[in-house]
Simulated scan of single mutants.
Amino acid sequence: MLTVDFSRLPVRPGDRVLDLGCGGGRHAFEVLRRGADVVAFDQDLKELEGVAAMFAAMSKAGEIPDGATGTTVSGDALAMPFPDASFDHVIAAEVLEHIPHDTQAIAEIVRVLKPGGFLAVTVPSFLPERICWALSEEYHTAPGGHIRIYTLAELKAKLKAAGLRVGPHHHAHGLHSPYWWIKCAVGVNNNDHPLAKRYHDLLVWDIMKRPAVTRIAERLLNPLIGKSVVVYARKPA
């Protein structure tokens, strides 16, 4: 399930791409399939083990174009172990809302991004996130949870203040917001609640089958209640 629209992020064979806060690696895998060299970067060593295992499985299955590489690196987003201008593009998907010093993290992104390079950054959308916070204190107070709710204007302003040229934006995962509202209402960790389980099954079915009815529904819902907002920006050449 991708949040970034790769028709707006020009990843090409031979590019070097940083997936910052890669988590399970969903965007890193797509970058690798497109023939680029990807660095999956995260603090969570267990997540990185899973990403490395998937890189190996993709290689064994012949899913990686010739010359493309996937590597994992553990570290701190506020002090990344990369030289200046190391990457053609950077993806930061659902990570800034976890970082207390988000402006410092953005400055680090700008530092490692090459002049002319593109950034795709995603955060939870304001309205769906605000509803989650109102329904459940546990949702946003758990260790490692979300510590802020961005407005689109705030996110764009912080990117501009770091010297980036902000481009288009869009919303994603409109079908996922109701699931999280249900989870917040019945208990974030109550995975056995019948309503939460049924909606989860619907989402899995949608991801696996991608039927036309849910694709159309999501396109209609995204501008209204899309769970994530994605902003694209460029570092001036």
Rank of each mutant, 00 (worst) to 15 (best):
M1E: 08
T3S: 10
D5A: 13
R8P: 06
R8Y: 06
P10T: 03
D15M: 15
D15N: 14
G21F: 12
E30Y: 02
E30H: 11
R33S: 13
V39Q: 02
A40S: 14
D42V: 04
D42K: 07
Q43R: 15
D44H: 11
L45V: 12
K46I: 13
L48A: 00
A53W: 12
M54L: 10
A56M: 12
A57Y: 03
M58A: 14
A61C: 00
E63Q: 15
P65R: 10
G67V: 13
G67P: 08
G70H: 05
T71A: 14
T72K: 08
G75S: 08
D76A: 08
M80Y: 10
F82K: 00
D84F: 09
D84E: 13
F87L: 04
F87M: 04
I91F: 12
I91S: 01
A93C: 15
V95D: 00
P100C: 03
E108I: 05
I109F: 09
V110R: 15
V110N: 04
R111H: 10
K114G: 10
G116A: 10
G116W: 03
V123W: 11
E129Y: 11
I131E: 00
L135N: 00
S136W: 04
S136F: 08
E138A: 15
Y139H: 14
H140D: 02
A142H: 13
P143H: 01
P143T: 01
H146E: 00
H146Y: 06
I147H: 07
R148A: 09
T151D: 02
L152M: 06
K156D: 09
A157Y: 04
K158V: 07
K158Q: 12
K158T: 05
K160S: 14
V166R: 03
P168G: 14
G174C: 05
P178G: 02
W180H: 13
W181T: 12
K183Y: 04
H193V: 10
P194T: 08
L195A: 15
K197R: 15
R198F: 08
W205V: 00
M208V: 14
P211D: 12
A212L: 14
T214L: 13
A217N: 05
L221M: 12
P223N: 01
I225Q: 02
S228Y: 15
V229H: 09
V229G: 05
V229T: 14
P236L: 13
A237Y: 07
